[in-house]
Write a protein that binds this DNA or RNA. Structure first.
Lengths: 210, 210
DNA sequence: CGTACTTTTGAATCGCATCAAATCTGGTGG
DNA sequence: CCACCAGATTTGATGCGATTCAAAAGTACG
Protein backbone atom coordinates (compact mmCIF):
# COMPACT_ATOMS: atom_id res chain seq x y z
CA UNK A 1 0.00 0.00 0.00
CA UNK A 2 1.30 3.44 -0.93
CA UNK A 3 0.79 5.21 2.39
CA UNK A 4 2.60 8.31 1.25
CA UNK A 5 0.08 8.94 -1.47
CA UNK A 6 -2.85 8.24 0.81
CA UNK A 7 -1.52 10.46 3.59
CA UNK A 8 -1.23 13.29 1.11
CA UNK A 9 -4.98 13.76 1.01
CA UNK A 10 -5.87 12.36 4.44
CA UNK A 11 -3.38 13.52 7.06
CA UNK A 12 -4.88 11.37 9.79
CA UNK A 13 -3.26 8.38 8.11
CA UNK A 14 0.10 9.58 9.30
CA UNK A 15 -0.95 8.76 12.84
CA UNK A 16 -2.17 5.23 12.14
CA UNK A 17 -0.30 2.68 14.23
CA UNK A 18 1.93 0.38 12.17
CA UNK A 19 -0.07 -2.62 13.26
CA UNK A 20 -3.30 -1.05 12.01
CA UNK A 21 -1.78 -0.22 8.64
CA UNK A 22 -0.55 -3.75 8.28
CA UNK A 23 -4.03 -5.06 8.96
CA UNK A 24 -5.64 -3.06 6.15
CA UNK A 25 -7.16 -4.77 3.13
CA UNK A 26 -7.15 -3.11 -0.23
CA UNK A 27 -10.38 -3.72 -2.13
CA UNK A 28 -11.22 -2.97 -5.74
CA UNK A 29 -14.88 -2.51 -6.60
CA UNK A 30 -16.56 -2.34 -9.97
CA UNK A 31 -19.34 0.11 -10.71
CA UNK A 32 -22.54 -1.10 -9.10
CA UNK A 33 -20.84 -3.52 -6.75
CA UNK A 34 -22.13 -3.62 -3.18
CA UNK A 35 -19.68 -3.27 -0.30
CA UNK A 36 -22.13 -3.92 2.52
CA UNK A 37 -25.83 -3.91 3.17
CA UNK A 38 -28.14 -2.51 5.79
CA UNK A 39 -28.14 -4.70 8.88
CA UNK A 40 -24.84 -6.39 8.03
CA UNK A 41 -22.57 -7.01 10.93
CA UNK A 42 -19.64 -4.60 10.90
CA UNK A 43 -17.04 -5.68 8.36
CA UNK A 44 -14.57 -2.96 9.14
CA UNK A 45 -13.89 0.74 8.90
CA UNK A 46 -13.73 1.86 5.28
CA UNK A 47 -11.95 4.60 3.44
CA UNK A 48 -12.35 5.61 -0.20
CA UNK A 49 -9.03 5.90 -2.04
CA UNK A 50 -10.38 6.21 -5.58
CA UNK A 51 -13.78 6.45 -7.21
CA UNK A 52 -17.04 7.07 -5.38
CA UNK A 53 -18.95 5.10 -2.80
CA UNK A 54 -22.59 5.91 -2.15
CA UNK A 55 -24.42 5.20 1.03
CA UNK A 56 -28.03 4.58 0.17
CA UNK A 57 -31.29 3.47 1.66
CA UNK A 58 -34.29 2.17 -0.16
CA UNK A 59 -37.60 3.86 0.38
CA UNK A 60 -40.62 1.61 0.60
CA UNK A 61 -41.54 2.26 -3.01
CA UNK A 62 -38.06 1.19 -4.08
CA UNK A 63 -36.70 4.69 -4.66
CA UNK A 64 -33.10 5.20 -3.67
CA UNK A 65 -32.31 7.71 -0.96
CA UNK A 66 -28.70 8.81 -1.05
CA UNK A 67 -27.27 9.48 2.41
CA UNK A 68 -23.78 10.29 1.38
CA UNK A 69 -21.54 10.40 -1.66
CA UNK A 70 -18.01 9.75 -0.55
CA UNK A 71 -15.17 10.57 -2.92
CA UNK A 72 -12.20 10.21 -0.63
CA UNK A 73 -11.96 9.72 3.11
CA UNK A 74 -13.81 7.60 5.62
CA UNK A 75 -17.47 6.78 5.49
CA UNK A 76 -19.93 5.00 7.78
CA UNK A 77 -17.70 5.90 10.70
CA UNK A 78 -20.69 5.94 13.01
CA UNK A 79 -21.15 2.23 12.47
CA UNK A 80 -18.00 1.67 14.50
CA UNK A 81 -20.04 2.61 17.54
CA UNK A 82 -23.32 0.88 16.73
CA UNK A 83 -21.86 -2.39 15.45
CA UNK A 84 -23.91 -2.64 12.29
CA UNK A 85 -24.65 -0.73 9.14
CA UNK A 86 -27.72 1.43 8.80
CA UNK A 87 -27.56 1.65 5.01
CA UNK A 88 -26.14 0.02 1.87
CA UNK A 89 -22.78 0.96 0.40
CA UNK A 90 -22.50 0.75 -3.37
CA UNK A 91 -19.72 1.76 -5.73
CA UNK A 92 -21.02 4.45 -8.07
CA UNK A 93 -18.07 3.85 -10.37
CA UNK A 94 -14.97 1.74 -10.43
CA UNK A 95 -13.48 2.38 -6.99
CA UNK A 96 -10.79 1.43 -4.52
CA UNK A 97 -11.28 1.31 -0.77
CA UNK A 98 -9.23 0.43 2.27
CA UNK A 99 -10.75 -1.80 4.90
CA UNK A 100 -9.49 -1.71 8.47
CA UNK A 101 -10.66 -4.58 10.66
CA UNK A 102 -12.81 -3.41 13.56
CA UNK A 103 -10.77 -5.21 16.17
CA UNK A 104 -7.50 -3.68 14.98
CA UNK A 105 -9.11 -0.26 14.78
CA UNK A 106 -10.50 -0.42 18.29
CA UNK A 107 -7.26 -1.80 19.60
CA UNK A 108 -5.46 1.15 18.07
CA UNK A 109 -7.87 3.60 19.68
CA UNK A 110 -7.37 1.99 23.07
CA UNK A 111 -3.64 1.57 23.05
CA UNK A 112 -2.35 4.45 21.02
CA UNK A 113 -3.02 7.86 22.59
CA UNK A 114 -1.67 9.76 19.57
CA UNK A 115 -3.91 7.86 17.19
CA UNK A 116 -6.91 8.32 19.45
CA UNK A 117 -6.36 12.07 19.66
CA UNK A 118 -5.83 12.23 15.92
CA UNK A 119 -9.02 10.29 15.29
CA UNK A 120 -11.00 12.60 17.55
CA UNK A 121 -9.46 15.57 15.79
CA UNK A 122 -10.29 14.04 12.44
CA UNK A 123 -13.92 13.50 13.40
CA UNK A 124 -14.15 17.02 14.81
CA UNK A 125 -12.83 18.36 11.57
CA UNK A 126 -15.32 16.36 9.54
CA UNK A 127 -18.10 17.82 11.66
CA UNK A 128 -16.82 21.32 11.07
CA UNK A 129 -16.45 20.83 7.33
CA UNK A 130 -19.82 19.21 6.95
CA UNK A 131 -21.57 21.92 8.96
CA UNK A 132 -19.95 24.56 6.84
CA UNK A 133 -21.35 22.84 3.78
CA UNK A 134 -24.80 22.64 5.32
CA UNK A 135 -24.70 26.36 5.93
CA UNK A 136 -23.48 26.95 2.40
CA UNK A 137 -26.24 24.88 0.85
CA UNK A 138 -28.73 26.81 2.93
CA UNK A 139 -27.82 29.95 1.03
CA UNK A 140 -30.35 30.66 -1.68
CA UNK A 141 -28.30 32.11 -4.48
CA UNK A 142 -25.43 30.75 -6.54
CA UNK A 143 -23.36 33.87 -5.91
CA UNK A 144 -23.69 33.59 -2.14
CA UNK A 145 -22.62 29.97 -2.18
CA UNK A 146 -19.56 30.76 -4.27
CA UNK A 147 -18.52 33.61 -1.99
CA UNK A 148 -19.14 31.49 1.08
CA UNK A 149 -16.99 28.73 -0.37
CA UNK A 150 -14.10 31.04 -1.12
CA UNK A 151 -14.33 32.73 2.29
CA UNK A 152 -14.35 29.45 4.19
CA UNK A 153 -12.39 26.95 2.12
CA UNK A 154 -9.88 29.39 0.75
CA UNK A 155 -7.28 31.48 2.52
CA UNK A 156 -7.63 35.23 2.85
CA UNK A 157 -10.28 35.52 0.16
CA UNK A 158 -8.31 33.53 -2.36
CA UNK A 159 -8.61 29.96 -3.53
CA UNK A 160 -6.97 27.63 -6.00
CA UNK A 161 -9.36 25.02 -7.29
CA UNK A 162 -8.16 21.44 -7.19
CA UNK A 163 -11.20 19.98 -8.87
CA UNK A 164 -12.99 20.62 -12.14
CA UNK A 165 -15.63 23.32 -12.16
CA UNK A 166 -18.20 20.70 -12.91
CA UNK A 167 -17.28 18.87 -9.71
CA UNK A 168 -17.23 22.18 -7.86
CA UNK A 169 -20.71 22.91 -9.09
CA UNK A 170 -21.93 19.60 -7.67
CA UNK A 171 -20.31 20.40 -4.32
CA UNK A 172 -22.07 23.76 -4.33
CA UNK A 173 -25.39 22.12 -5.11
CA UNK A 174 -25.63 23.87 -8.48
CA UNK A 175 -25.70 22.81 -12.09
CA UNK A 176 -22.45 23.47 -13.89
CA UNK A 177 -24.24 25.93 -16.18
CA UNK A 178 -25.38 28.00 -13.23
CA UNK A 179 -21.85 28.03 -11.84
CA UNK A 180 -20.28 29.14 -15.13
CA UNK A 181 -22.81 31.89 -15.61
CA UNK A 182 -22.53 33.18 -12.08
CA UNK A 183 -18.73 33.18 -12.22
CA UNK A 184 -18.88 35.21 -15.40
CA UNK A 185 -21.26 37.69 -13.82
CA UNK A 186 -19.18 38.04 -10.66
CA UNK A 187 -16.06 38.53 -12.72
CA UNK A 188 -17.77 41.15 -14.87
CA UNK A 189 -18.99 43.22 -11.94
CA UNK A 190 -15.64 43.10 -10.16
CA UNK A 191 -16.56 40.82 -7.28
CA UNK A 192 -14.12 38.16 -8.40
CA UNK A 193 -10.79 38.02 -10.15
CA UNK A 194 -10.42 34.77 -12.03
CA UNK A 195 -7.26 33.48 -13.63
CA UNK A 196 -7.50 29.82 -14.56
CA UNK A 197 -7.94 27.93 -11.27
CA UNK A 198 -7.03 30.89 -9.12
CA UNK A 199 -10.01 32.84 -7.85
CA UNK A 200 -9.71 35.95 -5.72
CA UNK A 201 -12.36 37.98 -3.99
CA UNK A 202 -12.25 41.57 -5.13
CA UNK A 203 -12.90 44.66 -3.07
CA UNK A 204 -16.41 45.33 -4.32
CA UNK A 205 -19.43 44.45 -2.27
CA UNK A 206 -20.88 41.08 -3.06
CA UNK A 207 -23.99 41.09 -0.96
CA UNK A 208 -26.01 43.25 -3.29
CA UNK A 209 -25.75 44.81 -6.67
CA UNK A 210 -22.95 47.33 -6.99
CA UNK B 1 -27.11 21.56 37.52
CA UNK B 2 -30.01 19.35 36.51
CA UNK B 3 -28.14 16.54 34.76
CA UNK B 4 -31.20 14.40 34.40
CA UNK B 5 -32.89 16.96 32.22
CA UNK B 6 -29.78 17.56 30.16
CA UNK B 7 -29.15 13.86 29.63
CA UNK B 8 -32.66 13.47 28.31
CA UNK B 9 -31.85 15.25 25.08
CA UNK B 10 -28.12 14.52 24.91
CA UNK B 11 -27.41 10.91 25.93
CA UNK B 12 -23.65 11.39 25.85
CA UNK B 13 -23.97 13.29 29.12
CA UNK B 14 -24.71 10.08 30.92
CA UNK B 15 -21.12 9.02 30.29
CA UNK B 16 -19.50 12.19 31.56
CA UNK B 17 -17.11 11.49 34.42
CA UNK B 18 -18.23 12.93 37.74
CA UNK B 19 -15.16 15.11 37.90
CA UNK B 20 -15.97 16.63 34.51
CA UNK B 21 -19.53 17.38 35.52
CA UNK B 22 -18.33 19.06 38.64
CA UNK B 23 -16.02 21.26 36.60
CA UNK B 24 -18.77 22.62 34.38
CA UNK B 25 -19.78 26.26 34.48
CA UNK B 26 -23.31 27.31 33.79
CA UNK B 27 -23.50 30.51 31.75
CA UNK B 28 -26.48 32.69 30.95
CA UNK B 29 -26.29 34.85 27.86
CA UNK B 30 -28.55 37.64 26.72
CA UNK B 31 -29.59 38.08 23.12
CA UNK B 32 -26.70 39.51 21.14
CA UNK B 33 -24.07 38.67 23.72
CA UNK B 34 -20.80 37.25 22.39
CA UNK B 35 -19.46 34.04 23.88
CA UNK B 36 -16.15 33.99 22.04
CA UNK B 37 -14.51 35.51 18.98
CA UNK B 38 -12.50 34.24 16.06
CA UNK B 39 -8.91 33.64 17.06
CA UNK B 40 -9.66 33.51 20.79
CA UNK B 41 -7.73 30.95 22.73
CA UNK B 42 -9.92 28.00 23.66
CA UNK B 43 -12.12 28.85 26.64
CA UNK B 44 -13.70 25.44 26.90
CA UNK B 45 -16.06 23.02 25.26
CA UNK B 46 -19.55 24.43 25.08
CA UNK B 47 -22.99 22.97 25.01
CA UNK B 48 -26.27 24.77 24.44
CA UNK B 49 -28.89 23.98 27.05
CA UNK B 50 -31.43 26.64 26.14
CA UNK B 51 -31.81 29.26 23.46
CA UNK B 52 -29.73 29.49 20.32
CA UNK B 53 -26.06 30.11 19.73
CA UNK B 54 -24.91 31.14 16.29
CA UNK B 55 -21.45 30.57 14.94
CA UNK B 56 -20.71 33.35 12.51
CA UNK B 57 -17.95 34.73 10.39
CA UNK B 58 -17.68 38.15 8.92
CA UNK B 59 -16.96 38.48 5.24
CA UNK B 60 -14.55 41.25 4.45
CA UNK B 61 -17.40 43.53 3.44
CA UNK B 62 -18.97 43.03 6.85
CA UNK B 63 -21.69 40.64 5.81
CA UNK B 64 -22.43 37.91 8.31
CA UNK B 65 -21.99 34.30 7.29
CA UNK B 66 -23.76 31.88 9.57
CA UNK B 67 -21.82 28.65 10.02
CA UNK B 68 -24.08 26.94 12.46
CA UNK B 69 -27.19 27.59 14.44
CA UNK B 70 -27.01 25.45 17.52
CA UNK B 71 -30.15 24.91 19.54
CA UNK B 72 -29.03 22.13 21.87
CA UNK B 73 -25.89 20.07 21.95
CA UNK B 74 -22.24 20.83 21.52
CA UNK B 75 -20.84 23.36 19.15
CA UNK B 76 -17.35 24.32 18.07
CA UNK B 77 -16.23 20.82 18.95
CA UNK B 78 -13.50 21.04 16.35
CA UNK B 79 -11.85 23.79 18.34
CA UNK B 80 -10.91 21.21 20.95
CA UNK B 81 -8.49 19.85 18.40
CA UNK B 82 -7.16 23.09 16.97
CA UNK B 83 -6.89 25.06 20.20
CA UNK B 84 -8.61 28.19 18.94
CA UNK B 85 -11.88 29.31 17.51
CA UNK B 86 -12.41 29.73 13.81
CA UNK B 87 -15.51 31.90 14.15
CA UNK B 88 -17.51 34.09 16.54
CA UNK B 89 -20.19 32.69 18.82
CA UNK B 90 -23.14 34.94 19.54
CA UNK B 91 -26.38 34.27 21.37
CA UNK B 92 -29.26 34.77 18.94
CA UNK B 93 -31.66 34.98 21.85
CA UNK B 94 -31.52 34.65 25.61
CA UNK B 95 -29.59 31.41 26.07
CA UNK B 96 -27.97 29.09 28.57
CA UNK B 97 -24.80 27.14 27.90
CA UNK B 98 -22.55 24.78 29.79
CA UNK B 99 -18.83 25.31 29.68
CA UNK B 100 -16.45 22.44 30.29
CA UNK B 101 -12.86 23.47 30.90
CA UNK B 102 -10.51 22.13 28.24
CA UNK B 103 -8.14 20.59 30.75
CA UNK B 104 -10.88 18.69 32.54
CA UNK B 105 -12.33 17.59 29.21
CA UNK B 106 -9.01 16.31 27.91
CA UNK B 107 -8.26 14.64 31.22
CA UNK B 108 -11.59 12.86 30.96
CA UNK B 109 -10.81 11.69 27.45
CA UNK B 110 -7.47 10.33 28.56
CA UNK B 111 -8.47 8.62 31.76
CA UNK B 112 -11.98 7.43 31.14
CA UNK B 113 -12.30 4.83 28.38
CA UNK B 114 -16.08 4.80 28.50
CA UNK B 115 -16.27 8.56 28.14
CA UNK B 116 -13.73 8.52 25.32
CA UNK B 117 -15.70 5.90 23.41
CA UNK B 118 -18.90 7.84 23.98
CA UNK B 119 -17.31 11.04 22.73
CA UNK B 120 -16.03 9.31 19.60
CA UNK B 121 -19.48 7.83 19.07
CA UNK B 122 -21.03 11.25 19.57
CA UNK B 123 -18.73 12.85 17.01
CA UNK B 124 -19.29 10.00 14.55
CA UNK B 125 -22.99 10.47 14.90
CA UNK B 126 -22.71 14.20 14.30
CA UNK B 127 -20.78 13.46 11.12
CA UNK B 128 -23.43 11.04 9.95
CA UNK B 129 -26.28 13.44 10.67
CA UNK B 130 -24.57 16.35 9.04
CA UNK B 131 -23.70 14.39 5.91
CA UNK B 132 -27.29 13.25 5.58
CA UNK B 133 -28.36 16.87 5.76
CA UNK B 134 -25.87 17.84 3.09
CA UNK B 135 -27.33 15.17 0.87
CA UNK B 136 -30.83 16.42 1.61
CA UNK B 137 -29.99 20.02 0.82
CA UNK B 138 -28.48 18.90 -2.47
CA UNK B 139 -31.93 17.79 -3.60
CA UNK B 140 -33.50 20.36 -5.90
CA UNK B 141 -37.17 20.25 -5.00
CA UNK B 142 -39.06 20.87 -1.80
CA UNK B 143 -40.96 17.59 -2.15
CA UNK B 144 -37.79 15.54 -2.43
CA UNK B 145 -36.30 17.16 0.65
CA UNK B 146 -39.42 16.47 2.67
CA UNK B 147 -39.55 12.82 1.62
CA UNK B 148 -35.84 12.43 2.27
CA UNK B 149 -36.28 13.88 5.75
CA UNK B 150 -39.15 11.58 6.64
CA UNK B 151 -37.36 8.50 5.30
CA UNK B 152 -34.19 9.24 7.22
CA UNK B 153 -35.17 11.07 10.37
CA UNK B 154 -38.42 9.25 10.89
CA UNK B 155 -39.10 5.60 11.54
CA UNK B 156 -40.67 3.36 8.91
CA UNK B 157 -41.92 6.22 6.80
CA UNK B 158 -43.55 8.03 9.69
CA UNK B 159 -42.46 11.00 11.71
CA UNK B 160 -43.73 13.12 14.57
CA UNK B 161 -42.48 16.66 14.37
CA UNK B 162 -40.94 18.08 17.51
CA UNK B 163 -40.36 21.55 16.11
CA UNK B 164 -42.55 24.14 14.48
CA UNK B 165 -43.02 23.89 10.74
CA UNK B 166 -41.29 27.19 10.38
CA UNK B 167 -38.20 25.77 12.07
CA UNK B 168 -38.54 22.62 9.99
CA UNK B 169 -38.58 24.73 6.84
CA UNK B 170 -35.33 26.39 7.87
CA UNK B 171 -33.78 22.98 8.50
CA UNK B 172 -34.89 21.89 5.02
CA UNK B 173 -33.44 25.02 3.48
CA UNK B 174 -36.85 26.28 2.39
CA UNK B 175 -39.04 29.23 3.17
CA UNK B 176 -41.95 28.34 5.39
CA UNK B 177 -44.34 29.26 2.61
CA UNK B 178 -42.76 26.73 0.26
CA UNK B 179 -42.99 24.05 2.94
CA UNK B 180 -46.67 24.71 3.66
CA UNK B 181 -47.59 24.68 0.01
CA UNK B 182 -45.65 21.53 -0.77
CA UNK B 183 -47.12 19.71 2.22
CA UNK B 184 -50.59 20.63 1.03
CA UNK B 185 -49.84 19.37 -2.47
CA UNK B 186 -48.32 16.10 -1.22
CA UNK B 187 -51.29 15.55 1.03
CA UNK B 188 -53.70 16.24 -1.81
CA UNK B 189 -52.11 13.77 -4.19
CA UNK B 190 -51.88 11.02 -1.59
CA UNK B 191 -48.13 11.00 -1.04
CA UNK B 192 -48.48 12.06 2.57
CA UNK B 193 -50.98 11.58 5.36
CA UNK B 194 -50.85 14.50 7.74
CA UNK B 195 -52.57 14.71 11.11
CA UNK B 196 -51.27 17.56 13.21
CA UNK B 197 -47.59 16.81 13.87
CA UNK B 198 -47.82 13.23 12.67
CA UNK B 199 -46.76 12.78 9.05
CA UNK B 200 -46.88 9.44 7.26
CA UNK B 201 -45.64 8.50 3.84
CA UNK B 202 -48.48 7.08 1.80
CA UNK B 203 -48.34 4.22 -0.66
CA UNK B 204 -48.24 6.33 -3.80
CA UNK B 205 -45.04 6.90 -5.64
CA UNK B 206 -43.25 10.05 -4.63
CA UNK B 207 -40.51 10.06 -7.19
CA UNK B 208 -42.68 11.38 -9.97
CA UNK B 209 -46.21 12.52 -10.59
CA UNK B 210 -48.82 9.85 -9.98
C1' DC C 1 -57.61 40.95 25.96
C1' DG C 2 -53.80 42.20 23.72
C1' DT C 3 -49.40 40.95 21.80
C1' DA C 4 -46.29 38.08 19.38
C1' DC C 5 -45.73 34.28 16.73
C1' DT C 6 -47.11 30.55 13.73
C1' DT C 7 -49.93 28.90 10.14
C1' DT C 8 -52.09 29.53 5.86
C1' DT C 9 -53.18 31.34 1.31
C1' DG C 10 -52.56 34.61 -2.75
C1' DA C 11 -50.11 37.00 -6.60
C1' DA C 12 -46.04 38.45 -8.93
C1' DT C 13 -41.33 37.90 -9.84
C1' DC C 14 -36.81 36.03 -10.42
C1' DG C 15 -33.20 32.74 -10.55
C1' DC C 16 -31.95 28.30 -11.39
C1' DA C 17 -32.80 23.95 -13.85
C1' DT C 18 -33.38 22.08 -18.10
C1' DC C 19 -32.63 21.11 -22.82
C1' DA C 20 -29.65 22.14 -26.70
C1' DA C 21 -25.58 22.89 -28.96
C1' DA C 22 -20.98 24.70 -30.06
C1' DT C 23 -16.20 24.97 -28.64
C1' DC C 24 -12.28 23.65 -26.18
C1' DT C 25 -9.22 20.29 -23.91
C1' DG C 26 -6.43 16.31 -22.87
C1' DG C 27 -5.45 11.86 -23.94
C1' DT C 28 -5.29 7.59 -27.26
C1' DG C 29 -4.04 5.20 -31.01
C1' DG C 30 -3.10 4.90 -35.95
C1' DC D 1 2.06 14.13 -35.98
C1' DC D 2 -2.61 14.06 -36.78
C1' DA D 3 -7.31 12.24 -36.33
C1' DC D 4 -10.42 11.22 -33.12
C1' DC D 5 -13.00 10.74 -28.95
C1' DA D 6 -14.71 11.65 -24.23
C1' DG D 7 -15.24 14.90 -21.15
C1' DA D 8 -15.15 19.71 -19.60
C1' DT D 9 -16.29 24.35 -20.70
C1' DT D 10 -19.23 27.89 -22.45
C1' DT D 11 -23.35 30.18 -24.25
C1' DG D 12 -28.42 30.44 -25.58
C1' DA D 13 -33.56 29.92 -24.99
C1' DT D 14 -37.33 28.47 -22.22
C1' DG D 15 -40.17 27.05 -18.30
C1' DC D 16 -40.98 25.89 -13.67
C1' DG D 17 -40.68 26.22 -8.94
C1' DA D 18 -39.16 28.61 -5.08
C1' DT D 19 -38.72 33.20 -3.25
C1' DT D 20 -40.67 37.40 -2.13
C1' DC D 21 -44.08 40.55 -0.64
C1' DA D 22 -48.61 40.80 1.38
C1' DA D 23 -52.20 39.78 4.30
C1' DA D 24 -55.57 37.11 6.99
C1' DA D 25 -56.64 33.71 10.38
C1' DG D 26 -55.25 30.83 14.11
C1' DT D 27 -52.80 30.04 18.62
C1' DA D 28 -50.07 30.50 22.86
C1' DC D 29 -49.17 33.27 26.75
C1' DG D 30 -48.95 36.87 30.19
Amino acid sequence: MDWQAVTAFLPVFATFPTRLRAAADHLELEAGETLFRLGDRLKGVFCVVAGEIRLIRRARNGAEIVLDRSRGGFFAEASLATGKYHCDAVAAESSAVLRFPVSAFNAGLHKDAVFRDAWIAHLSNEVRKSRAQVERLSLRSAAERIIHYIELEGADGMITLTESRKAWAAELGLTHEALYRTLRRLKANGTLDIHADRIVLGHRSHTGRP
